[in-house]
Amino acid sequence: MSAWLGLGPAEMLGLLLVYFIGGLVKGGSGFGLPLVTISMSPFIVPIDLALAVNAVVLPFANVYQYGRSGLAKATLMRFWPILLGLLLGVPIGALFVNAIEPAALTMALGLFILAFVGLSVVNPRIAVPGDLERPAGAATGFIAGIVGALTTANGPLFVIYLVGRGVERQMMVATLGLCFLVFGVLVSGSFWAIGLLDAQRFLLALLCVAPVLVGVWAGDAWGARLPQATFRRFILVLLFLLGANMLARTAFAM
């Protein structure tokens, strides 16, 4: 066990703790798991192993989040255009993996997120008009699919759209679960096809599912007690931190 994938007991415990923290953030906000874990786990394991584990954990976490919401049918009926855009965007993004510099795209995404947070603070009434919900949703899914294929960091794009529509917490968490479930399945299949994911890494990822689910449960129990206005402020703070993290990572990489 100590030599499995080059990980000793300390590394294993550290990795499980990282995924518990990621689950805690996801449970409270509905998103942020891959961004949290991909920021922390490379201090413990190689980046390619971290990406492989993320790819497997994501679908499991989102099946749980989406299934327990009680809003599976409602979210699918309302937000199917996001999924359509996502299914179109992911393969297109995959075609440009070797043509676009991921660091530049990550920096642009971080700047966009910070700009949105700033505008939301100055003008809290920024909104997506109701008559544009479906076309804006399809565009969001399409862009998120491309960005996700290139960086795996597309969660904030979904959140920005849902905040703009004024979606309340329970519906937002359920919708994010649906979007990430579809995206996670697509990414897992892609990683398996290119050899980044194999049987041993799959088994390691399965071990990380349990702490993630415990974290999601604990975070959701806490988040459900927040008033809608407080939840919105929490989301904006989390978006700010994630956007700043994106900029910091690309700056240090240069």
Rank of each mutant, 00 (worst) to 15 (best):
2 S>D: 14
3 A>P: 02
3 A>Q: 12
3 A>L: 13
4 W>G: 11
6 G>V: 09
14 G>P: 01
17 L>R: 00
22 G>H: 04
33 L>P: 05
33 L>S: 06
55 A>P: 01
57 V>W: 02
58 L>K: 02
60 F>H: 06
63 V>W: 09
67 G>R: 13
75 T>I: 09
81 P>A: 05
92 I>G: 06
93 G>D: 08
99 A>G: 00
101 E>G: 09
112 F>W: 14
114 L>I: 08
117 V>H: 03
123 N>G: 11
123 N>V: 13
123 N>E: 15
135 P>Y: 14
136 A>E: 07
142 F>I: 03
144 A>Q: 09
144 A>W: 07
147 V>H: 05
149 A>R: 03
151 T>F: 08
159 V>H: 06
161 Y>N: 06
162 L>N: 03
166 G>R: 04
166 G>P: 10
167 V>P: 00
167 V>T: 07
168 E>P: 15
170 Q>I: 00
170 Q>W: 00
174 A>D: 12
178 L>N: 06
180 F>D: 05
180 F>Y: 12
181 L>F: 12
182 V>A: 11
196 L>T: 11
197 L>M: 10
203 L>K: 02
212 V>K: 04
213 L>I: 01
222 W>P: 04
228 Q>K: 09
233 R>H: 06
237 V>P: 13
240 F>C: 12
242 L>S: 12
243 G>S: 05
249 R>Q: 15
254 M>V: 15
